[in-house]
Amino acid sequence: MNPQETNIQGILAEYLNSRNPSNAPTGHLDQDTLAAFTEGTLTELQATPAVSHLVDCSYCRHITAELVRLDLEFAEEPVPARTRDAEPARISEVLSGVLAKIFGTSENAVFAHEDKDKKDEKDKDQIDEKKD
């Protein structure tokens, strides 16, 4: 680069860090678009509005920058494969535990709606048995 280009680089950098875009968008890109953009998997058709948005939206641009850093960091250090469980754990059990921790519910409460029908049937059977 010639000296003038070097100088303009510094001036430009300062300008970019001080500018306040006049057409800053009010909305943000959805997570699906942010993720796909970061991976470079959007087609030109889809990427064109996304790139325009990122130029003016510091919030979304910052997220994509963070995601790129994260992606690179993890690409350099492969994630070890998880030891496969012999038997599938019921996901409802996993989620019930998680929800109970967050909301302080009992382990079965969250999935009560799923088990409700079965419970109703059981109660009905018990009533019928008593009747008999």
């Binding site: 970019l16 991976e39 990122l54 910052h62 790129v68 690409a75």
Partner: peptide, 29 residues
Amino acid sequence: KLLLLYYHVENLKLREIARLVENEASPLR
């Protein structure tokens, strides 16, 4: 514009920007 903003405002390093355009089908690339 986006390239310059990534480099100067978000402070992405060259190798991080290279990662962003690593996909051969990347529109930016």
